[in-house]
Design a protein around this nucleic acid. Structure first.
Lengths: 139, 139
DNA sequence: TTGTGTGCAAACACTTTGCAATTAG
DNA sequence: CTAATTGCAAAGTGTTTGCACACAA
């Protein structure tokens, strides 16, 4: 099922902007910010506006196409992999990567069983210095 | 070692504002926001300003007296328990509680061993609905 | 045709900053 | 005395909103 079909089936209109934003999102492996997506689309879509990126992301989140990440650098990042998983952000170059080492689903199960909350979401984020930046620092 | 001594030993001046803010912080069990601390001090310290709360928290963070939390509600919260531990925020009443069920230190160890990052920080935050709000909803 | 979507600019919320006046040491 | 700190107001940042115009269905 492609993006146009998903939008239609959820009662939203299919627009060039929405398609472009979706493609930009799935094309990036960097958990892009709204600004980054906006910038990467300006060349092809000169009239694109940042507000449209935000509004579109809100829809995408609502219909489960993206997860909004809060990795502690004061701006939302968008992840098209909506499975629970953890992230790590390099405090030097600011890139965000997936962390596969830990089983987020198991952790959230522990939380749910250990507390009386109904757990609805999780954000597991680490920060550190990535191998590349570590190497540069040692020179 | 009390707050006055700590400040002095770190080369900062001891002011009534800093003492009051520290007391407000340690008095709250709610991971207060800057605004909340500011409001709770206005009565006793009419001239207190929000900017001073922010500036003071920056110092407290620098000298390891508080950890700044990012629990996904668009404002910083301050925690005087600087040991790594997880939090859960109720999306209905917006309160933030400590989560003792999971061993954050162990998780961060796993991350450090499983990746090539030098891990320097972590934010493990869940969101859900607290027992109180669950009860109210069912009526 | 009609109501949703877009793009601009203004509004927003939280936080930071510049600076004159104040105060701790 | 003097350098650090305060408090105000203004600026800054990322995000949201109102609204006229454009466009998908």
């Amino acid at each position: 099922m492609d993006i146009a079909q998903i939008l239609r089936s959820e009662g939203f209109k299919v627009t060039p902007q929405r398609i472009a934003i979706y493609q930009a999102l799935t094309g990036h492996h960097n958990h892009p910010t709204a600004e980054l997506i906006y910038q990467s689309l300006r060349a092809e879509h000169p009239s694109m506006s940042l507000a449209t990126v935000y509004k579109t992301m809100e829809i995408f989140e609502k219909i489960g196409l993206v997860k909004v990440l809060d990795v502690g650098d004061d701006c939302a990042r968008y992840d098209w992999d909506t499975q629970n998983h953890s992230h790590i952000r390099c405090t030097v170059c600011n890139k965000v990567e997936d962390l596969m080492g830990i089983d987020s689903k198991a952790i959230s199960k522990i939380v749910e069983e250990g507390s009386e909350y109904r757990v609805t979401g999780q954000q597991i984020t680490f920060e550190g210095i990535c191998p590349d930046c570590l190497r540069k620092q040692s020179h």
